[in-house]
Amino acid sequence: MCNLYTLRLSAAELAEHFGRVEAAASNAGEEVYPGAPGLVIREDDGRRIMQSMTWGFPLRLKTMPPTAKPKPVNNIADLAKPMWKGLAAKPQWRCLIPLTAFAEAEGPKGAKTRTWFSVVDQPVFAWAGLWRDSAEWGPVYSGVMTDCNEAIRPVHDRMPVLLHADEWDQWLHGSYDDALTFQARCFPDHLVAMERTSEPWVKRKTFRESPQLI
């Protein structure tokens, strides 16, 4: 499960990297947490748009009191599940999530640290995502997950569905079967760099909801 990632490039640098991107105002931070704003790239009528959205689809459990805040579903475990299939089958609801690195927690309970993963020789890369408009938080997005490769296996058994640059258009425009193929494939081990750190996993109190994966 991915519950933290960074994006340390400016809007201008992102527009140059992803090409033909129309930038919009953003309040996203360099570190992105579930339930917080992040940047996504989507297409609308042939235009590629960079937009700030909330990371996580709002989920209200039956056991929650009516006044409770929804929980953000920020990871997508299975595109074939009913919650996701309708969106995944329609290219207009697919997006690219730009990031410079993502983190997993490693270590004993109460003393977990951040282990960061990035793509070798890539200052920014893309994670396959879905987005929609919500009544609770406006535009929201979530990232598609898959089984980990060997580079990530020492830390976690799942990883984001990472896209090569020549796959962006196929993710944004391809068929539902194409989307399922991306979730089933394994990203090359040799392209993933790992950096273990002494940074504590929990650094601040901006987010204390339990993130969800469905």
Rank of each mutant, 00 (worst) to 15 (best):
T100S: 15
E136F: 15
I214W: 03
W137M: 11
V144H: 04
L180M: 04
C95N: 04
T181E: 13
F182W: 01
E104T: 04
M50V: 12
P211R: 14
E13Y: 04
E16L: 12
A101Q: 07
V32C: 02
Y176D: 03
T115I: 11
W84V: 00
N3T: 05
Q51K: 05
R204F: 09
T146H: 00
A179S: 08
Y176A: 03
A25Y: 09
I49D: 02
L99H: 01
Y33N: 03
T6I: 06
A24L: 13
D45V: 02
P72K: 11
D169C: 06
M194P: 09
Q212N: 07
K81M: 05
C2L: 09
P200H: 14
P108R: 14
W116A: 14
P66G: 11
A15C: 12
Q183H: 00
A25V: 13
W201D: 11
K81A: 11
F57N: 01
A11G: 10
N74Q: 10
K112G: 06
T6Q: 10
A11H: 11
V40D: 00
I76T: 02
I76S: 00
V161Y: 02
L96S: 03
K112H: 07
G46T: 07
Q183K: 05
I214L: 15
N149W: 09
G35S: 10
Q212D: 10
E31C: 11
R47W: 02
E16A: 12
T100P: 01
D169V: 08
F125Q: 08
E22K: 12
Y33E: 05
E13F: 02
W168G: 09
K71D: 06
R208C: 09
G56P: 01
M145K: 06
D45L: 05
